[in-house]
Every structure is written in structure tokens, then in C-alpha cells.
Design a protein around this nucleic acid. Structure first.
Lengths: 340, 340
DNA sequence: TTGTACGCGTTATCAA
DNA sequence: TTGATAACGCGTACAA
């Protein structure tokens, strides 16, 4: 009496059902290869013993872990959190587990995390953005771990990606800003070092200016880590510049919210005196006053598409197709016609 | 020429260094047990081959995976995202990886995820809240997987917990509301079924009313899933009740933001006509207009404390100590004296 | 259709 | 201090 102190194994099930371990294994992995009669006996034994396969053993034997790794800059940000949640949901549906690691936007940490996850035997890897040493991609190839990039779409890149056109979207948004008559524009960008999304967004804004035949100096760029306080500080600095911009575009909504807060604090009317734009369209963008003109990114759709594509790669159905997720501009109160 | 197609193993390193696999293993796990001379040789071989241990094999042999599982209702919510991020950071410092799963507030899904993670050989498990069938705790005990509960502090519960006193905090907040002269109070709660935090918060509000000698009917409770839109809808419904409440307390900040949005939409002045309170103190609470009176929960601190405690349990240094994380009320604009 | 037996890459025990 | 070698639990040729 008294249950055994250790989890039941294939062997226990085999004995219980009076078959070999091979048969039990087949019952679980390719039920078609075993006759109804025995299968029933086996499955009831599985049930009776409460057997659950030991994944580590399975991983070793099959060289397959049914787990996917994801390395994101941080979970503490609505945009990654939402996309990751969708990614995980879809993974689970397909029988995969998710191993998450975060890099805090630090390339060295990310590199380390990649090694860790590969050593853990993940079947595939989700990475954010393309900017990364070639050595890392070599490493992944050597270990034959399929990797998919998300949050950025660059069809010509070495790695397949499921994301959106950061540059094009920011360019569109900048066109709107120009169309509203703004000619002196500030841009609060996230740190572009090692962050191709941030860099592309800056480039996109520059594209629009060039297209309009404006001088590059018409755009004043400040780089700062993402964060509300940083956005506020950067905004304050932009307000000290001469001539003062009439519109401030921000690398993401979080920075924009910071800018907005600072404007409110010092009594600068938005969009009366200054227009402000964001990027991502997190929930906050619609809640804040004034509501934020921004670029809507369908994060859930991206997360789920990334999951299905990565699984296709892992299971050999795809060598890695890239998908461009469509974004669109959401016009809200924070952007208005320039008064000057 | 041409690197081997498969990752180097302990064996490869052993050959390269001219020692046995046992020695290599010792070099990596208890360097003290091997003499300087050989250790150097081994480590350089490790380096040369770019060896990384195969975690699945290690897990099997040592019956220890250096991975921790966490099952949270959803990542798509600032409060869990932030706490989880801190949890992961600390885990990583200690050499553990994080396996995340989300239950979408659904007990059956959670149960399933627990089995999955245990089968994957996690060394420990982080769970949110205490409310859960005893059978699950039995299962965890049987499998000898230490589990820690977070986001809720209940020292007398079966499982150790690192969290805060949801009931007490909500009671304190309700006292403030009462002190502001409110006597008809609405409460928009999250779904209490299977969610002890939500239930405790409702109880806490009731405690304060009882303490003040008020009838239970003075509190009108509406339950709804977390979400801005749901908060808005619930608020609208409360406004239809007679007599109309003069203050609406919300189970969390997300619901409160929804309530606020609806109030703004229909032109009810906050806090002029109606006061509103939240819970959690997410960034949004301070950004929104009017800013939200709420309960501040130090999520980062909780996440990190949970990680260190769980690791202590896993490594046998603790049988599971419970820790109460202190919360405090943050008074902002959304709560004011009742005009009636 | 089912069973036998080997291998996956480590750790750990026991000798040397 | 180091080296053989036996587990660990499962998948899968290959044989029956």
C-alpha cells in the first residue's frame, strides 16, 4: 500500500498492460500502428497509473523537445507581452511549450540566452528584430535550430521574419505630419544601437522629409531608452531647441505618453501648440488625453502568425516564409494642423 | 575540413582533452574536485569545441532541470507581465530558465499546464493565487515538485505564498472611500470564481462597510472579466441602479480605466459626481485623467522575492516560507469627498 | 502487429 | 585525483 514515490514510467505502463515498452510508446506516438484491442488495454493502463511521459527522456531519444524558445527585450511592455501571449496560445494549441528569456535590449545577454535555449534543446527560436551578429546565425545553423524573426519584416534578410514594415509605417505617419503643415519636427527615438526597429523608424521619418524635398536638419532626433520618464525628459530637451519643433514624433507610444505628460506638466497645449505622435497603438494610446495619433500594429495577429510559421519550419513544412503584417495609421487628437 | 554536423558532446571534449567523461563532467559541476592542471586542459577543450551541455541529458541523469515553470492567467496584463519579468530576471541570475504557460483564468487549462510542466521536469512551479483543487496539490506533492503561490498572501494556506493581503488592502481603500463620506458604493469586481484575489478584494470592501456599521446592501457588486470594455459596461450598469452610487471601487486598474472612460463618455464628472478607485497601481493609473486613487502593489519586488524563495525551496534550503509584500494606498484625483 | 535491444548525453557510484 | 560503468526514460531499427 502507499503509492510509489516516483512517477510511473513507460515500463510500469508496459507491465500493467502486459505488453512491451515499444508498444506503449507506439500507442502514444502513432496510435495507428497498434491494433485497437491492445491500444485500449494500454491506454487504460496509462490512465490507471496516471502516466505522463518524461519529456527530458523523450527529448533525448527523439532529438525533439516540443518546446520553443523566445527571446524578447522585455515582457514588461504591452507590445511584447501581447504578442508573446498570442504566440504562446498558438504554441500550446499545437502541443508546444514556451521557454522565455529576456535580453533587456542587451545583445550580449541575448547571445547568452540563445546558447542557453539551444542547449535546452528548443526545437525553434523566436527572436525580435534582425540586428544581430552573423556569428549567431551561424551558430543556429550549425545546431540546426530554425529561427524566426518577429516585430520586423525584412524579406531580403538572412532570417525569415513575420513582422511589419517599420520604416514604411513611420514614413506614412511622417507624411501625415507633413500634410498637417509641420515643417520643424522633433523625433524621440528608442536606442537604435542593436535595434533595427528603432533605426528603421527613424529612417522612415527621414524618407518622408526627403520625399517632401526638405532638409534633413528639419528633423531633430533624440535617442533615449524606452520609458515614460525618458520620453518626458527628451520632450523637455526638444522644447529647449531653437527653433522649437511644432510636432514631436515618438518611436513608440510609451515615449509619446511621456512626452505628453511633460507637455501637460509645463502647460504646453497638445495639439494646440505642439502635435505628438506615437507608434504601436497600445491600449493606453486611446485612453490618454489627448488621445494619441499612432501606428496600429496587430500584435496578436503577428504573434499567432509567428507561432504557426515557426512550427511549420520546425516540422519541416517550410524553410521559412516571411510575412508582412499590415499596419495602419490611427488618427486621433494629438496630431493637428500646424498653426505656424 | 567542415565542422561536424552535430553538437559536441562530453565525449568529444573528453577525447580532445585526453581524459574521461567523468572528469569533464566534474570540471563543469564541481571544479574543486579536479586538479588545476587537468582542469585547464579540459576547459580549453570545452572552449575550443564550443561545447554546451545538453540539458535534456543532464536533466535525466541528475533528475534536475534547472528550469522553473510559471503558470499565470495572462501575460497580456501589465501586472503579471511586470512581476513575471522580475521573476525571470532573478531566475536567470541563479542559473534557471523559465517555462511560462498561461491559463486564461481557466482552472482546467491550468491543471493541464501543471501536468505539462511537471512532465517537462521543472524543478519548481510558480502559481498565481491559492484557489485550486486539493487534488492538484496532491499531484505536486506526489511528484515532489515544490510550488509557490504568488499575488496572494495566505500564511495559513497549504502552499507557501509570496504575495500581499488582498483583503486587507481593499479594506483600507474602502475605509478611505467611506472616510470621504461615500455611503452608496458600487464595486466592479473581476470574476471571483477560481480567483481568490478577486474574492478577497470584495470581502475586504465588505469588511470596511461592516466595520462602519453599514448594511451590506450599501455595496452593489458587479462581476465581470478583467478588461477595459468590461469595466466600462459594468460602470454603465451601475449608473442605472437606484440609488446611484457616489463611488465606484474597481477590482483592478484596468476595470477602473474602463469605468473612467465610460464616465467621460457620458459626461459624468469624476470625481465631481462620482469617485472611482482602482487596484494595482499600473503606470496607466498615474497617466490617465483624472489620475487614479488605487492600491500600490510592488510587483517587481514580489516577482523577485518569489524567485528567490522558490529557488530556496528547490535547492532544499527552505520548506516554503510565506512572505507578505506591503502595499499602500496611493491617493490621487479620482477619489474625492462625496457631495451628497 | 508486437517485442528485443540499443542509443541518446549526462551524472554518480565505485574502484583504482 | 581520475576512470569505468551503470543508470535515467524514451524512441526506433530490426527481428520475429
Amino acid at each position: 500500500m502507499g503509492k510509489s514515490r516516483t512517477a510511473p514510467t513507460l515500463n510500469d505502463v508496459a507491465k500493467e498492460a502486459g505488453v512491451s515498452t515499444a508498444t506503449v510508446s507506439r500507442c502514444l506516438n502513432s496510435p495507428a500502428r497498434v491494433v485497437e484491442e491492445t491500444r485500449k488495454r494500454v491506454l487504460s493502463a496509462v490512465d490507471k497509473l496516471g502516466y505522463t511521459p518524461n519529456m527530458a527522456a523523450r527529448t533525448m531519444a527523439a532529438n525533439r523537445s516540443y518546446s520553443i524558445g523566445a527571446i524578447i527585450p522585455t515582457m514588461d511592455n504591452a507590445i511584447f507581452a501581447r504578442g508573446l501571449q498570442a504566440f504562446q496560445d498558438h504554441l500550446r494549441e499545437k502541443g508546444y511549450s514556451l521557454l522565455v528569456a529576456s535580453s533587456a535590449y542587451h545583445p550580449d545577454v541575448e547571445k547568452d540566452q540563445i546558447r542557453t535555449l539551444v542547449a535546452r534543446g528548443v526545437d525553434g527560436l523566436l527572436l525580435i528584430g534582425h540586428a544581430r551578429e552573423d556569428e549567431i546565425y551561424d551558430y543556429l545553423e550549425q545546431h540546426q535550430v530554425p529561427a524566426l524573426v518577429a516585430w520586423s519584416y525584412l524579406p531580403e534578410a538572412r532570417q525569415p521574419s513575420v513582422g511589419f514594415n517599420n520604416r514604411g509605417a513611420m514614413c506614412d505617419l511622417a507624411r501625415s505630419v507633413l500634410a498637417a503643415g509641420h515643417r520643424r519636427i522633433g523625433l524621440i527615438s528608442g536606442v537604435t544601437q542593436g535595434n533595427d526597429r528603432a533605426l528603421s523608424r527613424v529612417d522612415g521619418a527621414r524618407d518622408a522629409l526627403a520625399e517632401a524635398g526638405m532638409e534633413p536638419q528639419a528633423l531633430t532626433v533624440i535617442e533615449t531608452p524606452y520609458g515614460i520618464d525618458n520620453g518626458a525628459q527628451a520632450f523637455a530637451e526638444l522644447m529647449r531647441r531653437e527653433p522649437r519643433p511644432t510636432a514631436v514624433m515618438c518611436g513608440n507610444d510609451v515615449l509619446a505618453v511621456g512626452a505628453l505628460r511633460e507637455a501637460t506638466r509645463v502647460g504646453i497645449s497638445v495639439p494646440g501648440e505642439i502635435s505628438i505622435t506615437g507608434f504601436d497603438d497600445i491600449e493606453l494610446a486611446d485612453i490618454i488625453t489627448p488621445s494619441l495619433t499612432t501606428v496600429h500594429v496587430p500584435h496578436r495577429e503577428m504573434g499567432q502568425k509567428a507561432a504557426s510559421e515557426l512550427i511549420d519550419m520546425v516540422e519541416g513544412r517550410s524553410a521559412g516564409r516571411s510575412t508582412c503584417i499590415r499596419t495602419h495609421i490611427v488618427s486621433r487628437a494629438s496630431l493637428a494642423f500646424s498653426k505656424t
